[in-house]
Design a protein around this nucleic acid. Structure first.
Lengths: 236, 236
DNA sequence: ACGCGAGCAATGTGATCACAATGTTCCGAT
DNA sequence: ATCGGAACATTGTGATCACATTGCTCGCGT
């Protein structure tokens, strides 16, 4: 079995805009690659390795990795090795439960602040997702889908839950990719239309149901995959 | 009005055990001081200033501050100034709602794993809190109280919500201290006894009610303070 | 041939330095 | 006296280096 620990990682690059600090650029780059599953669980990341890969000094890599660690995206072992944590069945269920709990809450709290303009943006994002589904660009789907949810929750100006939710995404990201890559065809469906309809009607209950259904559908499609349980680690 | 931005900060020190990395020591030290409200909202923190204060190089301070920033404990302004964010009324409510949402969930998820040993530990912590209340050591109360909650939630081995909850505590900490310091006497009461009773009876519903009541009591005592609203900032 | 220990390579940490950007102060022009 | 700008001080960032610890490999002894 080829060890994924040492496998060469092929990062999806990201143009570095000059107003972005180097460590922010590294963070966003690694984050995107984790979210769309480009970096597999168990993969070991080294500061100097990434520094050479991205052609920057080790310093910004350190900061980015530490931030990812405190968001739960990577784990710093006692050996000081930094790895993408493996997924446990119990942990997966716990993360999904928390997603539903936090995201339905965040959606309901955002509802009163939704303006016409926000709905337009959400509909645009939904169309972009559909387009990405047609061409089967899974990484694109994943990133835009998160944009959809984030845009919704962030319309609440006093919102503090999005960072927590993003932490959950980061922890689910690497594993989800493995799961989705096992899917034959993108029979990916989402409940975004139902969510948008609920937004237009200012119906909090329907909105929460749509969000919960959207999340549960994703979980269900993962659970339906043949042999998915082999990808869970039994011990920590 | 004396600006708290430039006021000298008197940190509660923490002995540095040798097996602890310097940046971890700095992090825990700053974290404790934030949690018990020793560092007030609006306070500006500088890397070099803290480095001189704690007599370490700026490097570990940088890492600790960045970690605190990603947990929401401090905010990095676009000027690159790092400050303890001011509290908004809406934000305060949102944080409290999330505490109830997440902590009742975490408590219920922990319930099946509770052993006799865990209950003993919780009872010990509750006694320590009572002792701290008697002598009126508010900082001690705050820290042990968090230990109580953390110990409860962490008995769930697959638990992933504690980091999220701690982030909420960190954001509420500096403000709560201002509020509690306004309290004449520590008429502080907690619902820990009710929670422990629910644990013994394996009663999830009663446990969630106890946790929610415990949190709500804290909020109520803050809201009851005369002129507390003057401490909320209206704009961001 | 197998196990084990020494030496080497690689890693994270922390310190120091250079630099660009920002904040502050103080003096002069109006 | 007030406003504005220039000079200075302070800050965060990133690069480089030294060091202790860990992982790994090669070779010696049985």
């Amino acid at each position: 079995m080829k060890s994924s620990r040492t496998a060469k990682l092929e990062l999806r690059m990201l143009e570095k805009s000059p107003d972005l600090k180097t460590h922010q650029w590294v963070y966003q780059l690694l984050r995107n690659n984790l979210l769309c599953g480009r970096i597999e669980p168990g993969k070991a990341l080294t500061i100097r390795g990434l520094a050479g890969e991205l052609d920057v000094s080790p310093m910004p890599i350190r900061e980015a990795l530490h931030r990812l660690a405190c968001e739960g995206a990577v784990e710093v072992k006692d050996n000081r090795r930094v790895i993408v944590p493996a997924m446990t069945a119990a942990k997966f269920n716990e993360l999904c439960d928390l997603r539903i709990l936090l995201e339905t809450h965040a959606a309901a709290k955002a509802l009163p602040y939704i303006k016409e303009r926000d709905i337009d943006r959400l509909e645009l994002l939904d169309k972009q997702i559909d387009a990405a589904i047609v061409v089967g660009n899974i990484e694109e789907i994943s990133l835009i889908n998160q944009d959809f949810h984030r845009s919704l929750y962030r319309t609440n100006p006093a919102q503090v839950s999005v960072p927590l939710i993003e932490s959950l995404w980061l922890q689910l990201g690497p594993f989800s990719r493995i799961a989705i890559s096992k899917l034959e065809k993108a029979y990916l469906v989402d409940r975004h239309q139902e969510a948008i309809a609920a937004l237009k009607q200012k119906d909090a209950k329907a909105l929460k149901q749509a969000i919960e259904a959207d999340i549960r559908d994703g979980i269900a499609s993962i659970n339906s995959i043949e042999g998915i349980h082999d990808y869970f680690h039994s011990n920590n």
